[in-house]
Deep mutational scan, measured.
Amino acid sequence: MDPFLVLLHSVSSSLSSSELTELKFLCLGRVGKRKLERVQSGLDLFSMLLEQNDLEPGHTELLRELLASLRRHDLLRRVDDFEAGA
């Protein structure tokens, strides 16, 4: 399986429902409101961002910004580990 997708799945499974709600709010300018209403998990949101090329294995800035906004430094370390091994 693609290591970047494994990372996104790992991050998604670590998010609380309130954190997902916050991420959806933060992505309002990037993803349409109707699409965001269908998001049920972090993976749903990340999939939309992947489709729009806002997220890519070599383009993790948005993911970092979102996780920093949540103050999830543990998840930021996972992104660091991914990039160190990528």
Rank of each mutant, 00 (worst) to 15 (best):
S10A: 11
M1W: 06
G42S: 07
V79L: 10
L45Y: 01
L63G: 02
L5C: 08
G32R: 07
L55D: 06
G42D: 03
R38Y: 12
M48I: 15
H9F: 05
E22F: 07
S69G: 14
L7W: 03
R71L: 06
M48G: 04
L62T: 08
L50H: 15
C27E: 02
G85E: 13
A84Y: 11
D80K: 08
D2H: 07
D2S: 07
F82P: 00
D2Q: 04
S12L: 05
F82R: 01
L62M: 10
E56M: 12
E65T: 09
F4Q: 00
R78M: 12
K24D: 03
L26E: 06
C27I: 07
R30P: 03
V39P: 00
L7F: 08
L5M: 14
L50W: 13
F4N: 01
E51W: 06
L26D: 04
H59P: 07
A86T: 12
R38F: 07
S14G: 09
S12D: 05
E37Q: 09
L67Q: 02
S16V: 04
L23H: 00
M48E: 10
L49C: 03
R34E: 15
S47C: 14
S18M: 14
V39G: 02
K35R: 12
L23A: 06
L36T: 05
P57E: 15
L70E: 01
L50F: 11
S18Y: 09
L66G: 04
T21G: 12
D44M: 06
S47L: 15
A68V: 14
L5G: 09
K24C: 08
L50K: 07
N53V: 05
V79M: 06
S17Y: 09
S69F: 06
S17N: 12
F82M: 04
R72W: 00
G58W: 06
E19T: 01
V79W: 00
R34H: 11
V79S: 00
L8E: 02
L15V: 04
K35N: 12
E22L: 08
A68S: 15
R78D: 09
S47V: 15
E65K: 12
L45I: 11
L43V: 13
R72H: 00
L66D: 02
L55S: 06
H59W: 04
F46D: 03
G85F: 07
P57D: 11
E56H: 13
A86I: 13
R30K: 15
V31H: 04
